[in-house]
């Protein structure tokens, strides 16, 4: 499984200031590997993508997350930061 995370927006509005990382989950230590696989399951991300409530926040990042599963299937999601649980954001920072 490969997870790609890219952001746009933010206070600066500069792509270089945002997050841009690609992680081959198989290269992570086993405990982290398990947490990442659970957190980035496509159905979970799909639910988050559809959960967008009216957002009053400004200057936050918008996330483009691409998950390539072990069968080679590619899943793409566009998520506002406000819908991401704090635990998922912390995990992104840890990856």
């Amino acid at each position: 499984m490969i997870v790609k995370i890219a952001t746009s927006g933010g206070f600066a509005g500069i792509p270089a200031a945002g997050i841009n990382k690609t992680v081959d989950v198989s290269s992570l230590p086993p405990p982290l590997q398990e947490r990442v696989c659970r957190a980035f399951e496509p159905p979970k991300l799909k639910r988050l993508e559809k959960s967008g409530a009216p957002d009053t926040s400004v200057d936050r990042f918008n996330y483009a997350i691409t998950v390539t599963d072990d069968a080679g299937e590619v899943h793409r999601y566009r998520l506002e930061e406000s819908v991401l649980p704090a635990e998922l954001i912390d995990l992104m920072d840890e990856m």
Binding site: A17, D59, D93
Partner: peptide, 28 residues
């Protein structure tokens, strides 16, 4: 807020400031 976070924002009820990564940004 967060680790090496290159951003500051208003979330609808409060201000939030990252520390910056020290490379692109020093602070916010």
């Amino acid at each position: 807020h967060r680790r090496d976070f290159n951003n500051a924002f208003w979330n609808g009820s409060q201000m939030v400031y990252g520390d910056g990564d020290g490379v692109i940004f020093r602070n916010f």
